[in-house]
């Protein structure tokens, strides 16, 4: 090993990167943890003494309701994404290779474009005198326009619309790795389509499902602008609560505690994902 002096380039790069990450990722996260156990202070945001009041406030029925409702909408979003995405990823993995590249590209294009603008575009379609209602009425399927906007359903539709690619991509990658010979072996051993699906395909694609759930469930609790645009004031997400506490109500400890609960949920899901991957690794070997 050469000393740091002889490798000025390496040292400079490492100092720069570590400096950036420590200052703008590590320290800020510590601050949030710190803020969550402090006391609310209208003047300087937070003050001593140290207390667990913020976490206790999370259990206040008023907020607990918001959290559970947000969790419910996020879970529904995840479920709908899974129901649409699972067969989609399967079908996609069967398409000829060259066309697959194009189709995947078409799937990630919306991901890189402005999600706020796309949420607004959805509003154009769902509005009372919007395109969807007009189309349904002129087809004679409905008599009066449906009230689609400002409902729980609209929020879920919006979240599904924004997050569906995040469910499909990890599922697609596990379907790509699914070995045909395992499916044939299952058939040869006398298993029907259903038995093969339950005992072979589902367990082998489980890591993809968990990765997809992770990538959809968490953002689905944080994307505060979706309820703002589509949901009205009664269908709030955890993200709306956090934003409100930090920018309007100025209750930093509470906002920080809520965000830590989100982070812990993420850590738990990541752990479950790792576990399922390791199990399949052992069985597959």
């Amino acid at each position: 090993m050469r000393s740091a002096l002889q490798q000025p380039f390496k040292t400079a790069v490492l100092v720069l990167v570590w400096g950036w990450l420590l200052f703008l990722v590590f320290t800020p996260n510590l601050l949030v943890v710190g803020a969550s156990v402090m006391t609310r202070d209208p003047g300087s945001f937070i003050s001593l003494p140290i207390t667990l009041d913020a976490y206790r406030q999370l259990l206040n029925p008023l907020y607990l309701d918001v959290f559970l409702h947000s969790l419910y909408m996020a879970s529904m979003t995840t479920l709908v994404c899974l129901v649409i995405g699972y067969p989609f990823a399967w079908a996609l993995s069967k398409v000829p290779r060259q066309r697959q590249v194009l189709l995947i590209f078409l799937l990630i294009v919306p991901f890189w474009t402005n999600s706020l603008v796309r949420t607004y575009a959805l509003k154009l379609m769902l509005a009372t005198n919007g395109l969807l209602n007009n189309a349904l009425m002129s087809l004679g399927l409905i008599e009066e326009p449906l009230k689609l906007l400002y409902s729980e359903g609209a929020v879920i539709i919006g979240l599904v619309y924004l997050l569906l690619p995040f469910m499909i991509l990890p599922l697609y990658s596990v379907f790509e790795d699914l070995r045909e010979d395992l499916l044939r072996a299952s058939h040869d051993l006398g298993a029907g389509h259903f038995a093969t699906f339950v005992h072979v395909i589902v367990p082998l694609t489980l890591p993809g499902v968990l990765a997809g759930v992770m990538l959809v469930l968490l953002p689905a609790m944080g994307l505060f602008f979706v309820p703002d645009i589509l949901g009205g004031s009664r269908n709030l997400l955890v993200g709306n609560v956090i934003k409100n506490q930090f920018l309007d109500a100025r209750n930093w400890p509470f906002g920080a505690a809520a965000s830590i609960v989100l982070t812990l949920t993420m850590a738990f899901l990541m752990f479950a994902h790792r576990l399922s991957k390791r199990r399949i690794g052992e069985e597959g070997a």
């Binding site: 990722v25 800020p28 996260n29 993420m266």
Partner: peptide, 27 residues
Amino acid sequence: ALNGMLFVVMMSPEIVLAISLLALFLL
């Protein structure tokens, strides 16, 4: 640890990153 930190930045909900940076900037 470096790899892990980059991964965390990418995976954590944006709002978590947002409030942590706001806290830093005000501090």
